[in-house]
Design a protein around this nucleic acid. Structure first.
Length: 945
RNA sequence: GCCGGAGUGGCGGAAUUGGUAUACGCGCACGACUCAAAAUCGUGUGUCGCAAGGCAUGAGGGUUCGAGUCCCUCCUCCGGCACCA
């Protein structure tokens, strides 16, 4: 009989649908497993071969869980509101509703030929009024709690999509959809207060079993930083400047203050600013520039001094100039900073450009935590002050460097400062003793660096206070040095460039940098020039100084509020009514859903109003409160609204009374496995977590986090290594592949390509390997001997090892290695005379999640009446998997010299004797004495000689 | 710049806990079957070497009886954030 994939696959897909074998179980006594795919956005292009990868993964996983006795929820649906569908509709001159229907139909067809186990009775669609009724309901709850509000702040406006956008919708300051540079536009908009949840969104990441990269992206996005707000008063004025800083310990080093161009304080100081014209010009320019201009302009710092006004440093009452500069953002912190050029790179650059002074108040503290000279815990730190001598040659442009002989230190001449000495005296003495040079002149001190490390020669933890100083030799006059000095180090003359590469200690590198004129240091350290706080370390000084100047400790986030309104047609109407008497009135819950009116013209207006505003019949309504004339809100929700809670609706998709039945929610939540692409790391996955936490707070759900385990499938690129896209012409259509090779082969191949979470290249040439395997399985069926009770012991053992391997591999999403295990078993079956029915059945069951059609066909052919997909997963028997004979590797001196076969669980002595007797081993042991024998049971024996 | 992930044959990749590096597959070579071809099956396939044996997991060092795996220094690639004070 020939293997006809077309016939077999069609037949079983029909049969499964007819018998509804993948219907979600409802017996709540059974354990549950909720396996979820990120639902697709049905575009006009249809699916390419890259799309199903994640779906195949969840299909295998959910089939495996079902066979293991779980109630499995594995649903599918459509995310269909938003710009892509609307733009497609405008371009193709069809109504978005029609286009979406058509696209969904196409997607569903493409998915169905792959034989997935979705429970289609639970299909949802975000554009269905019965669905978005509850999206609107959630909005009303947010409104009730004050987490949704109207705002007039300037927002990001995409001139091409003609709508406002959220921060998350930008990529490098451009619209993520169309790559247009966005503008700042002041307009009325709805905003969700996601920042109220910033802290919880951040903290709860720690307990999620998610890819580290996604968690890290979210941490970056939320961008928590702890710091302080400090007040600088303005000389001869009432106003104060509030600045936010994470480094209050550097307050004494502030040499100027900068206001963001957006800071309203500037306007109020107007009459005191003689150069107002210049200032105003700068402000206008900054306002006109987009964010991308502000950061792109070669990053050169620009700004203008507010002449005539001065800020007072609250720490020491010093008068500081005030600047306006666009490197300070109006939308973060307080829109004002204290500038500490010695300890902040941006301030350093600005001070450099504007010739502002620099004041060092932090002396670096280097603590070695790794390597041979890492501070050893438990040992006391021994403090010592030392002079570090940078010595210049008497005639050449070279510096004297020192290389320690007993440890790997490369640095300068260093020595302790003895009592009564100043650094000049100490340095001169050290240079004479250590190098023999006699005529040394002290020029100047350079910097101080504190350093904690383990001194490997002296065997102590050292806390060194390195005071660097600059010396120059007057001539080359030199005396012989003492022998113990020569044993300790060599000295060499190096050019400045050579010194740079020579130094291998961070503390010495910092000293050299300072000597070369780079006084910027951004790390923590020990305070200097800071009045009473000098000598304290940064960490404690942060609190002490904040307290001393009556500052406030605060936490700030990069995360911005979620701009939630779009001036477009194709979205959920925001369910509020604007009444001239009552203001903003929520639509009563009983009136939901507020349905999107059917219109002829849905193109964006570009005026900042949604196209809905033109539909007077829809807009005009009565106020639910005063019953007077009122108007509907015409903005719609962003694309991300519907997807922020869809995973809940699958649990109870037809509930008319509530978003979800609490009993069902309790049983099915959370999602056990969630699979999708990395592109959703900071949008969908933050929004959904935010809404979920909100729903938790209003007791609509019982879990704090929606998705327990997250897996990102890697992208399948085109054969050319580029992302598949129609415009590049490298799209491979899955329908064609399935027609030629069959869905089973296609599924198997996509899983065999490589690790699930890694990207791969599609190659239609390589798929033959998977096809050959499937055909091999087909042929193997003919070798089944129903009378045979068992196969030979090694094959029996392999069958059971494979049960374990495939099970473990599916559990950890290592689908490629499971396929490899099945191939190995298939190859062994092929070598055997015949195969017992039991073992071939096990093989089919293990393969069933990957290749559901062929395994079903052969399973029935073996005489089984029930679908293979409803059978119990094969049970692994460790006893059957155990080999009676094992191969033990024999090593001599750590090198593999052969192997022996021994009874499993043999004693070390038996194995050692047998190994030594083997001829190919014996020759390596001849004339050697075995010092030690290392035996790893059933694996390896190593004779150390 | 900061953070995260990775680097293994001609190619995709395996090695789950420190224990035979290169499983499985593709490709390639040779052979069987065939009038022939395709398909299928078999054998071989890291590298140097006739061989014995040596050398190989981005580079260099270290720990260990033993390192792709652990530690240190560095290089390259991919991803996230980036004037966020």
């Amino acid at each position: 009989m020939k293997y006809d994939h077309v016939k077999i696959e069609k037949k079983w897909q029909k049969e499964w649908a007819k018998n509804n074998i993948y219907k979600t179980g409802s017996n709540q006594k059974k354990p549950k497993h909720y396996v979820l795919d990120m639902f697709p956005y049905p575009s006009g292009q249809g699916l390419h071969v890259g799309h199903p990868k994640g779906y195949i993964g969840t299909d295998i996983y959910s089939r495996y869980k079902r066979m293991n006795g779980f109630n499995v929820l594995h649903p599918m649906g459509w995310d269909a509101f938003g710009l892509p569908a609307e733009n497609y509709a405008i371009k193709n001159k069809v109504h978005p509703e029609v286009a979406v229907k058509k696209n969904i139909k196409r997607y569903k067809e493409q998915l169905s030929i792959l034989g997935f186990d979705y429970d289609w009775e639970r299909e949802i669609n975000t554009t269905d009024p019965e669905y978005y009724r509850w999206t609107q309901w959630i909005f009303l709850q947010l409104l009730k709690k004050g987490l949704a509000y109207e705002s007039y702040e300037p927002i990001n406006w995409c001139p091409s999509c003609q709508t406002g956008l959220a921060n998350e919708d930008l990529e490098d300051g451009k619209c993520e959809r169309c790559k247009s540079v966005v503008e700042k536009k002041p307009m009325r908009q709805w905003v969700l207060k996601i920042t109220d949840y910033a802290d919880r969104l951040l903290k709860d990441l720690d307990n999620l079993d998610w890819p580290e990269s996604v968690k890290e992206s979210q941490r970056n996005w939320i961008g928590r930083s702890e710091g302080a707000e400090l007040e600088f008063s303005i000389k001869d004025r009432e106003e104060k400047i509030r600045v936010f800083t994470t480094r209050p310990d550097t307050l004494f080093g502030a040499t100027y203050v900068v206001l963001a161009p957006e800071n309203p304080l500037i306007e109020s100081l107007k009459e005191d600013i003689p150069n107002w014209k210049e200032v105003k010009k700068y402000l206008d320019k900054a306002k006109a520039a987009s964010d991308i201009d502000r950061s792109a302009e070669g990053r050169e710092k620009t700004g203008v001094c507010l002449e005539g006004v001065a800020a007072i440093n609250p720490a020491n009452q010093e008068e500081l100039p005030i600047y306006v500069a666009d490197y300070v953002l109006g939308s973060y912190g307080t829109g004002a900073v204290m500038a500490v050029p010695a300890h902040d790179e941006r301030d350093y650059e600005f001070a450099d450009a504007f010739d502002l002074p620099l004041k060092t108040v932090i002396q670096p503290l280097i603590v070695k935590t790794a390597g041979d000279d890492a501070v050893q815990p438990g040992k006391a730190l021994e403090e010592r002050s030392a002079v570090v001598c940078i010595v210049k040659h008497w005639s050449e442009d070279k510096y004297l460097c020192s290389r320690w002989k007993k440890n790997d230190w490369k640095g300068f001449v260093i020595g302790g400062i003895e009592q009564g000495e100043d650094i000049g005296q100490a340095g001169i003495r050290e240079i004479q003793e250590e190098t023999g040079y006699q005529d040394v002149g002290f020029l100047t001190g350079v910097t101080t660096v504190h350093s904690q490390f383990y001194h490997a020669v002296k065997k102590v933890n050292r806390f060194a206070h390195f005071q660097a100083a600059f010396f120059q030799l007057k001539n080359g006059k030199r005396k012989e040095t003492a022998e113990e000095e020569r044993e300790l180090h060599d000295v060499v003359w190096l050019t400045a460039e050579e010194v740079e590469n020579f130094l291998n200690r961070e503390d010495m590198k910092l000293i050299w940098q300072a000597f070369r004129g780079n006084l910027l240091y951004e790390g923590n350290g020990i305070l200097a020039n800071s009045g009473a706080f000098s000598g304290q370390d940064s960490e404690s000084a942060k609190q002490a100084i904040t307290k001393a100047v009556s500052g406030k400790r605060v936490t700030k986030y990069k995360l911005r509020e979620w701009v939630f309104s779009r001036q477009r047609y194709w979205g959920e109407p925001i369910p509020v009514i604007h009444c001239p008497h009552c203001g903003v009135v929520p639509v009563p819950e009983k009136d939901l859903p507020v349905t999107l009116p059917k219109v002829k013209s849905y193109a964006p207006t570009g005026t900042g109003e949604s196209p809905l505003a033109a539909i007077k019949k829809w807009v005009n309504t009565t106020c639910p409160t005063c019953k007077g004339k009122a108007e509907r809100e015409t903005n719609t929700m962003p694309q991300w609204a519907g997807s922020s809670w869809y995973y809940l609706r699958y649990i109870d998709p037809k509930n008319k009374k509530a978003l979800i039945d609490p009993k069902k929610e309790k049983y099915w939540q959370p999602v056990d496995v969630y699979v999708g692409g990395t592109e959703h790391a900071t949008r969908h996955l933050i929004y959904a977590r935010f809404w979920h936490k909100f729903l938790y707070d209003i007791k609509a759900v019982g879990t704090k986090e929606p998705f327990k385990l997250l897996k990102n499938q890697g992208l399948i690129s085109g054969p050319d290594g580029r992302k598949m896209s129609k415009s590049l012409g490298n799209v491979v259509n899955p329908d064609d592949i399935v027609e030629r090779f069959g869905a089973d082969t296609f599924r198997l191949y996509e899983m065999f390509l490589g690790p699930f979470e890694q990207g791969n290249l599609w190659s239609t040439d390589n798929i033959v390997g998977s096809r050959r395997f499937i055909e091999k399985v087909w042929r193997l069926a003919e070798k089944v001997d129903s009378k045979k009770k068992a196969d030979e012991p090694e094959l029996e053992a392999l069958v059971h090892k494979t049960i374990k391997k495939v099970s473990d591999d599916i559990e950890r999403f290592s689908f490629n290695t499971a396929v490899s295990g099945l191939m190995i078993l298939g190859n062994e079956f092929e070598k055997a005379e015949s195969i017992s029915r039991v073992n071939f059945g096990i093989f089919l069951q293990l393969l069933a999640p990957y290749a559901p059609h062929i395994t079903e066909e052969l399973w029935r052919w073996l005489g089984n009446k029930k679908s293979i997909h409803l059978e119990a997963w094969p049970r692994y028997s460790p006893a059957k998997a155990a080999d009676s004979l094992v191969t033990v590797i024999v090593q001599v001196g750590g090198k593999v010299r052969g192997s022996i076969r021994v009874n499993s669980d043999s004693e070390e002595e038996t194995v050692a004797r047998k190994a030594q007797e083997a001829p190919e081993i014996g020759k390596w042991l001849e004339g050697q004495t075995v010092k030690k024998t290392v035996y790893v049971k059933n694996r390896l024996i190593n004779f150390v000689v």
